[in-house]
Every structure is written in structure tokens, then in C-alpha cells.
Amino acid sequence: MKRTSIRDFLYEPPGPKTRRRTTAATTVAVVLLAILLFLIIRQFYISGQLSSRYWAFFGKLSTWRFLWEGLMTTVQAALTGSGISFILGFLLMRGKVRDGRILKAICTALIEFTRGVPTLLFIYFFFLVVPQTGWQLNAFWKITLPCAISACGVVAEALRSGVNAVPRGQTEAALSLGLGKTRLFYKIVFPQAVRYVIPSLIAELVIVLKDTTFAYIVSCADLMQNAKVLISNYDALLSIYLVVAVIYILINYALNRLSDVWAKKAERQNGAERTQA
């Protein structure tokens, strides 16, 4: 029997007594949640935050265009950062599985280092120290590079687990066909490994996207920074930050859903391949 989620088998079909009790509890829960919602809205109301002057400008196109511009910078930074972290992570992963002992130690240390240090520390490093060395970066790279570096260790580990998940038979078959080590890796192992780890790569994209919210530190005009400009224009802090937070949540939610869907699809395909074999 195929099991889906623990939610589906924690209880059996309820009898009349349980059903009554569940209905009662559901009613109480609905009332409690309604009270919670009411209290929140009431707090907005009594502090005057529902007044139209805090929300009317969301009806203007210029507001959304400005937020959209910021969002595009955010998306660009997140995609570029993820791209760079993928390349760095790939190199670290290749270094870690090599035979050379020194290279292996260095790559392992770098992976642990980037995984154990907060992104903010990297951002402050690029913000405060890098300019002292005379290396002038613009605001975009000051946020993108630290986010990429901070993510590359996790990407390396994800890729490594993907490579390990490729069945040994694939390698053996390729070797017996006379493929060299390099072609074996790039033609057979790596493409399959990437397929396995796409959900973790998407999860990593979400993390990079979240990290780019710190762009205000280096004054890069991302979504958060543009929100700040709007706040000083309209003198409306709460409503704008709330809307921006919702935008972030929706994007990340969509990405996480995408990752789930991919994982489910891959699982189904693997299941189908196994039953065919």
C-alpha cells in the first residue's frame, strides 16, 4: 500500500460520538481564530493604520512600478548569486572528491567555513574590508558576492550527495564501455546528479533570495531598499513593509512549491523505472 502522509492514517473514520466532539472542537477553534483575527484588525484600527492615506497609494501604478524595479534587482541578485554559488559549489565538490589529499582538505575546510559563518558577516566583509584593499565593487556585487559565497558550501554538499545517489551500475556500465574518467563524470554521472538535487538547489535559491534582503546595508536598490524610499515618500511604514514582506513570502512560497513538485515528479519517475527493471 502506498502511504502519502502521516496525516492520513493517524485516525480512522470517526464514529458518531467522535464526530460530534470534532464538530464542537472545530467550532471552538473557528471562534478562537476569528477572535485572533479580530484583535489584529482592531489593533490596526485603533492605531489608525487602516486609514486610507496608508493604503491609497497602492492604487497608483507608479508605486508598483517602483516596487517592481526593486524586485527585478532582487531577482537579478538572487539568480546571479545562485549561479555563482553553483559554480563555486561545483568546484568545491570536485575538489573534495579528488584523490589529492591537500586539495581535499582545503575544499572540505572551505565548505565547513562557508556553512558555519553567517551571510551578514560576509556582507560586512565586502562592505567594510574589501574597499580598503582598493577593490572597488558596485553595490550590486557587494550584496551578490557575499550571498553567493555564503551559499556555495551548501551547494557543494548538495551536489556531492547527488553524485553519491547515482547508482553504481551507471559508472560500471560507462567504464565497461570504455569512457574516460572525465567523460564518465560529465556525460553520465553529473547530469543525473543534478536531476537528483534540483529540489535542494531551488531551496538554496530561496536562501540566497532571503539573504539579498540585506542589500540595504550596501545601499543596493533592491525591493527592500525601494520600499524604504517609498516609506519616506508617503510616510507610511507599516503598510509598505507589510506588502513587501508578503511579496517575499509569495515568491519564496512559489519556489518551494516548485521544489516540492519536482521532488514528487522525480520520485514517481524513479518508482516507474524501478518497476520496469
Binding site: 513587501v244 514582506a245 517575499y248
Partner: peptide, 12 residues
């Protein structure tokens, strides 16, 4: 809370 960036939550 899984999807909100830490900075956004803290600022709120």
C-alpha cells in the same frame, strides 16, 4: 515564517 526573510521579519 518559512518564507519570510529574516531581515524583513526583524524590521517589521
Amino acid at each position: 515564517f518559512r518564507n519570510i526573510p529574516g531581515a524583513a521579519l526583524l524590521i517589521l
